[in-house]
Design a protein around this nucleic acid. Structure first.
Lengths: 118, 118
DNA sequence: CTAAAGCGTGGACCATGGTTCATGGTCAAG
DNA sequence: CTTGACCATGAACCATGGTCCACGCTTTAG
């Protein structure tokens, strides 16, 4: 399929897809017609982009998505390693944010009392 | 004081301080000596940068720090509004990350079972 | 006096994840 | 045949938070 169809089927803009292509997230790109410069994107990219759409909200960068996709179909163990590593990062970030949250609550508690500003 | 001293007293690099100055975080900057172009930074900037150092890990951007500092000394109520708004953001982000964490745990749980890869 | 250290300015560069623009080629409908 | 939609490429630009460099001037230490 061409980029417009891929965009329609994934909900991503053509520009974003071109950016993802530069980022190495897409595979199976050919130029079947020597008369023009149009590219053909393999069907597999729809699935790959679904994986990216799933991973991105989990905090994976595009580079990490690329790495994961490169082993995703062949190496379950390595895929687990990525997930486990990211899980640790996410848990650490949650702890940091909980500390920030408690700090902000303290700010609000203190600033609610009658006197004392800064 | 000059930028070097401010850097020494805050632990920030001169470059970072100049970046912060461009970002509008510093006040009371004069050029007391007409013979040179050296700037003098008001003592108050040490405290301001301490506030920034406190706010940044809480997820406040530099622009938000600037806003908060602009009202910090005069308007306790508005300061509360900023803190409350950021608290809501932090709590939302925590919820998102917890969802991501659960998703990753699920990935690890599923990929631990014997068969089925992608 | 000389050399090093400090200072100000402006600009380039880094990563991240895109968006927008300009240019030029191609394809399909009317 | 013309118009509009689609495509590719490269480059510039956006925000965020800086870092690094070169240039030239000043200040300070030896």
């Amino acid at each position: 399929m061409r980029i417009g169809e891929l965009a329609a089927r994934t909900g991503l803009s053509r520009d974003t897809l071109r950016f993802y292509e530069r980022s190495g997230l897409l595979v199976g790109i050919t130029r079947p017609n020597p008369a023009n410069s149009y590219k053909d994107y393999a069907e597999a990219n729809v699935q790959r982009l679904a994986v990216v759409a799933c991973l991105k909200p989990l905090g994976f960068t595009l580079a990490e998505c690329r790495e994961i996709l490169s082993v995703a179909m062949t190496d379950k163990g390595r895929r687990r390693v990525y997930a486990a590593r990211k899980l640790a990062e996410v848990e650490e970030r949650i702890r940091e944010l909980e500390a920030a949250r408690d700090h902000l609550r303290e700010v609000l508690r203190v600033s609610a009392s009658p006197s004392s500003s800064s």
